[in-house]
């Protein structure tokens, strides 16, 4: 067993983990942060995407022990008093249906906008290529990211 300490959604969390414990399983099963779902075994779907030290990662493809000392933000930690602009835009644009891909999709979009505040449609689609959605055809997801980008640029002025 390995002792780890990870700042998760702003709070330091400590635990004992087996080496093989995936970050997503630790988040879900040990910390009870079940908002981050698991959608595949092959790191294709991106449903489990979280921010690790500020960048998007697929939490099914990181060992919990590798996250030791890191800062992790999950969908449950994105709102800071009020919803993140991407969360608002997803609701506004009907960018989700079943919602299972949504935590990963939103997290990936937050990462994308952190790097590129004014992306083209093409750049948005590139930025989300690691996240699969089966309900929306991505149409409204792209619209939501465009809306959020505009809101965030406006707020930054």
């Amino acid at each position: 067993m390995h002792r780890i300490s990870v700042t998760v959604n702003g709070t330091t969390r400590e635990g004992e983990v087996e080496a093989r414990t995936l970050l997503v399983h630790w988040l879900r099963d040990s910390l009870g942060l079940a908002g981050t779902p698991i959608g595949c075994d092959t790191s294709n779907c991106g449903a489990c995407t979280v921010l690790m030290d500020g960048r998007s990662v697929k939490s099914c493809s990181v060992l919990a022990v590798q996250a030791d000392g890191s800062e992790v933000t999950t969908i449950q930690g994105l709102a800071n008093g009020e919803w993140h602009p991407v969360q608002k835009a997803f609701k506004e644009c009907h960018a989700l249906q079943c919602g299972y891909c949504t935590p990963g999709m939103i997290t990936a979009a937050v990462d994308l906008l952190g790097e590129n505040p004014d992306p083209t449609e093409e750049e948005i689609r590139h930025g989300l290529e690691g996240n699969l959605c089966r309900c929306t055809g991505y149409h409204n997801i792209v619209k939501a990211v465009e809306l959020a980008a505009g809101e965030m640029r406006e707020a930054a002025k």
Binding site: R28, L33, A34, G35, T36, P37, I38, T74, I75, Q76, L78, A79, W83, Q87, F90, K91, E92, H94, L96, G99, Y100, T102, P103, I106
Partner: peptide, 21 residues
């Protein structure tokens, strides 16, 4: 009317109850 979905408040914040949860 294009009413914004009531369901989404939980879904965009991760407050979901999938069976596995």
């Amino acid at each position: 009317s294009p009413v914004r979905r009531k369901e989404d408040d939980r879904l965009v914040t991760g407050q979901t109850t999938w069976t596995d949860n």
